[in-house]
């Protein structure tokens, strides 16, 4: 079943740089997709359009049945609540504990305290950080911080998890740990789209791989075909 569909998408920035052109793409529910390509090929623009940080100039982007390109700025939160996003720089609140960082995503929606507690503990257990619940971000390693960020992104139970170079700041071993966590999350039914520069990871996981070049899909490798 289709979760994401991009039809003839074009994005040109105000500076005149065309990041995406004539992009057509379809991603099904439950898939794990890598997006790779050289710097400036449009990877980041593509995922930013998926969570509606950027708007396409033309074409249609459907995510979970919603035409995100047509969403007004004031309504963007509606799609964001269905999508989890993880970044290279973790984006954690430095003055809040691990628990508070994850709970934050539930608190703003008025989820009852007991429910917040059980969900946060469960999700921290999933990413293997239950024992660090009271630590502050600066007391954690890079890999641990990224796992907190992943926990925060999935605590709402999003259908889609977008990862923008989540292992970019991490060493190979820690990166593989993060990938294991992401695979676990994917097995639970969450669709994952991950932008990466690490060919090792892509080869190791053997998932679907989309190669972008100059804002177009250069190659789309089905699961298990990228070598």
């Amino acid at each position: 079943m289709e979760l994401i569909r991009l039809t003839n998408v074009k994005k040109t920035y105000k500076t005149g740089v065309t990041a995406i052109q004539d992009l057509n793409l379809s991603i099904n529910k439950g898939e794990f997709v890598f997006i790779i390509g050289s710097t400036g090929c449009g990877k980041s623009t593509l995922i930013k359009m998926l969570y509606r940080e950027e708007k396409p100039n033309s074409g249609q982007i459907i995510v979970g049945g919603v035409d995100v390109g047509k969403l007004r700025n004031g309504k963007v939160y509606k799609i964001r609540r269905k999508i989890g996003v993880v970044f290279q720089d973790f984006k954690l609140l430095p003055k809040s504990t691990v628990y508070e960082n994850v709970a934050f995503a539930l608190e703003i929606f008025g989820v009852p305290k007991a429910e917040i507690h059980s969900k946060v503990v469960k999700v921290l257990d999933l990413v293997g950080l239950k024992h660090k619940i009271k630590s502050y971000p600066n007391e954690l390693s890079g890999g641990e911080q990224q796992r907190v960020a992943i926990a925060r992104a999935i605590v709402n139970g999003p259908k889609l998890l977008i990862c923008d170079e989540p292992t970019g700041n991490l060493d190979p071993n820690t990166s593989m740990e993060i990938m294991k966590v992401l695979e676990e999350i994917n097995k639970l039914g969450t669709t994952i789209i991950m932008v990466t520069h690490s060919i090792d990871i892509v080869k190791e996981l053997n998932k679907r791989v989309i190669v972008l070049d100059s804002g177009r899909v250069l190659k789309d490798y089905a699961e298990g075909t990228y070598r």
């Binding site: 939160y77 799609i79 964001r80 984006k91 703003i108 925060r152």
Partner: peptide, 14 residues
């Protein structure tokens, strides 16, 4: 803090 709030789906009112 605000950018994180926006990211996790907080509305402008939130």
């Amino acid at each position: 803090e605000i950018s994180i709030m926006r990211l996790i789906g907080a509305s402008n009112l939130n």
